[in-house]
């Protein structure tokens, strides 16, 4: 068994499962948003912010953002472990990625509840 402390769930199985579950959430969210746009051809600011004023939509969006964060981290972690063979460089890049994901996540929450 290969151990690795930087992976998301410390287990290939949980990472793999998380990757798939988050993908399904993102897919549903995307379909919903696309459908919303299609059914509202004359979309204006009020309709859009009206949608996001509803609690269920905020929770749904937050779920999608968290899923995106997890999905991105697992995927990018994999890419870094494939291609970056220098430990120092890899950990550095991974730190930047984590920071980036964190910032986007906080920013997303701020947008959802900040208005």
């Amino acid at each position: 068994m290969v151990t690795n402390i930087t992976s998301f769930g410390r287990s290939g199985l949980s990472d793999w499962l998380m990757q798939r579950v988050s993908a399904v959430i993102l897919a549903i969210y995307t379909v919903f948003i696309v459908a919303f746009l299609l059914f509202n051809p004359d979309l204006d600011y009020y309709a859009w912010s009206g949608l996001f004023n509803q609690t269920w939509m905020r929770i749904f969006s937050l779920l999608a953002f968290v899923a995106l964060a997890a999905h991105a981290w697992i995927g990018l972690w994999t890419v870094t472990t494939d291609y970056l063979k220098s430990t120092r460089l890899r950990v550095g890049v991974q730190a930047v990625i984590i920071l980036g994901i964190f910032v986007y996540l906080v920013w997303g929450i701020q947008i959802l509840w900040g208005a």
Partner: peptide
Amino acid sequence: LSNLEDPFSVFR
């Protein structure tokens, strides 16, 4: 199975 559940052995 427990020897394989890490992120590399199988899941790569």
